[in-house]
Simulated scan of single mutants.
Amino acid sequence: MSASHTEQFEHLIARYREQYEALRETQQRLREISCTATAPRQAVSVTAGHGGVIKDVKFPTGAYKRMAPNELAAAVLGAITEAQNLATAEAAEAVAPSLPEGVDARRLFAGEVDLQTLLAPEPHLSDTVRDVLKIRD
């Protein structure tokens, strides 16, 4: 390998390491997501983590005792939905910088993005990689 190819290869390795570290940090940030939503009158408080996983449910006041069962159920479900939406928004914000340009993270998390559009049918290979692998067009 020539000096130029060695430098290009070293640059590729350095770039890979930077991307790897950024992904590690994103993964850590996703693990730390914790979003809390509280229903009106503080009847119920729900905390959700990444993926909408419910981490905690609390009844911070005695307001739930004065609620009809269907009213309490609606308050609990509303708080769960809000906490999950907050967690999804935070996850989208964490992942957005690592997505290809033009990909809306919130739409991706909502299942509104065709995942096949994120990858080219054929990977782009630099001339250096083509030379090393002896690939010709």
Rank of each mutant, 00 (worst) to 15 (best):
M1Q: 05
M1D: 03
S2N: 12
A3K: 09
S4F: 03
S4Q: 12
H5A: 12
H5Y: 01
T6F: 13
H11Q: 10
L12P: 00
R15G: 01
R15P: 00
Y16L: 03
R17M: 09
E21A: 07
E21K: 07
A22P: 01
A22R: 13
A22L: 06
R24K: 13
E25D: 07
T26K: 04
Q27T: 15
Q27S: 12
L30T: 05
L30G: 03
E32H: 13
C35M: 15
A37P: 07
A39H: 00
P40V: 01
R41K: 12
R41C: 04
Q42L: 07
V46I: 15
G49C: 11
H50T: 12
G51M: 08
I54F: 10
K55S: 10
K55Y: 09
V57M: 13
V57H: 00
V57T: 12
F59S: 05
P60A: 11
T61M: 03
T61R: 09
A63L: 01
A63N: 06
A63F: 03
A63Q: 08
Y64S: 02
Y64Q: 07
M67V: 07
P69T: 11
N70D: 15
L72P: 08
A73P: 02
A74C: 07
A74G: 06
A75S: 14
A75W: 00
V76R: 04
L77H: 03
G78D: 01
E82R: 09
A83Y: 00
N85M: 12
L86A: 13
L86K: 14
L86Q: 15
A87F: 03
T88E: 06
A91V: 13
A91R: 04
A92H: 09
A92P: 11
E93C: 11
A96L: 13
P97A: 05
P97L: 07
L99R: 06
L99M: 12
G102H: 11
D104T: 14
A105D: 10
A105P: 03
R106K: 14
R106I: 12
R106L: 11
L108M: 13
F109I: 10
F109T: 02
F109V: 09
A110F: 02
A110C: 10
G111R: 04
G111S: 14
V113Q: 02
V113R: 01
D114Y: 14
L115S: 10
L115Q: 04
Q116L: 14
A120Q: 13
P123G: 04
L125I: 05
L125D: 02
L125C: 06
D127K: 11
T128Y: 04
V129M: 05
V129G: 00
R130V: 07
D131A: 07
D131V: 00
V132L: 11
I135E: 05
I135H: 05
